[in-house]
């Protein structure tokens, strides 16, 4: 199995604040890797390195290398648009556009220059099916996305990310704003998506990390404390901080 994602000695500074301290990790294709840790530990910042979302923030400095398929995404001359097509992202809160359900899914295709109507229609349907939302919305594709429930909106956002066929899916606490039923739907979906995508997920929820992920990384104060298979991390962690965190003693 080839490595598809790899970071080597990544440091990130917000101005003077050292947010990520020398993170080195390898993630396997078609697996789910969970990033856990208390608030402010850098796990979301780390996640946002892979599609260069941190570029939007002023005064960010990044050192080290982040390789996807052997290519450093922070090298000069990297096409960010191309990168973001390959690395989809689902955010913490459902954030559909103020457009119809159909147009939300089609957005990524349209901004990437796809104009073929049939192609877009097919892709919208397929993405919605992949996100297990098709049955619920197939009769109201022309309705505003705001009319959906929170859980449906989040699945819409997943479908939107899938529509441009990324290979990697970044999920930043995708279920934190949802009720338990919607959460379990999203988790089922992650299981399903693993077959075709490499998924990196940030979560606050220990049980969720244990349920959905193959590998787990524990972050604390900008350090990668421990990284291993989810089974190992949750059954016999090496580090006392990891143990304290997953048993709920702090965090």
């Amino acid at each position: 199995m080839s490595l598809i994602i790899e970071t080597k000695d990544v440091n990130l500074y917000y101005g003077d604040f050292h947010a990520l301290k020398g993170i080195s990790m390898e993630m396997q294709p078609n697996t789910v890797t969970a990033f856990i840790g208390p608030s402010g530990c850098g796990k979301s910042t780390y996640l946002r390195l892979f599609n260069r979302m941190n570029d939007l923030i002023d005064a960010v400095k990044i050192t080290g290398t982040i390789n996807i398929d052997g290519k450093n995404v922070y090298e000069k001359g990297v096409d960010i648009v191309e990168l973001r097509r390959k690395v989809g992202m689902v955010f913490q809160k459902p954030n559909p556009f103020p457009k119809t359900i159909f147009e939300n899914i089609a957005y990524g295709l349209r901004v990437n220059g796809v104009g073929d109507k049939h192609f877009i229609e097919d892709r919208v349907e397929r993405s919605l099916k992949q996100a297990a939302l098709w049955e619920e919305v197939k009769d109201k594709l022309k309705k505003s996305a705001f009319e959906l429930s929170g859980g449906q909106q989040q699945r819409l956002c997943i479908a939107r990310a899938l529509a441009i066929e990324p290979t990697i899916l970044l999920m930043d606490e995708p279920a934190s704003a949802l009720d338990p039923i919607s959460t379990s739907k999203i988790e089922e979906l992650i299981h399903e998506l693993k077959k075709n995508y490499t998924i990196l997920i940030v979560t606050h929820n220990m049980q969720q990390a244990a349920r959905v992920s193959d590998a787990t990384a524990f972050f604390y104060l900008g350090n990668l404390v421990e990284f291993g298979t989810t089974k190992d991390i949750f059954t016999h962690p090496n580090d006392i901080k990891t143990q304290n965190y997953i048993t709920g003693r702090f965090g």
């Binding site: 648009v81 973001r84 989809g88 955010f91 954030n95 556009f97 901004v111 956002c157 441009i164």
Partner: peptide
């Protein structure tokens, strides 16, 4: 979040602004 969603889908700044 909405701007980021657009950018994350590979839209450039101008597409994000006008769409």
């Amino acid at each position: 979040a909405m701007k980021e969603a657009s950018l994350a889908l590979g839209a450039n700044k101008w597409q994000t602004i006008h769409r």
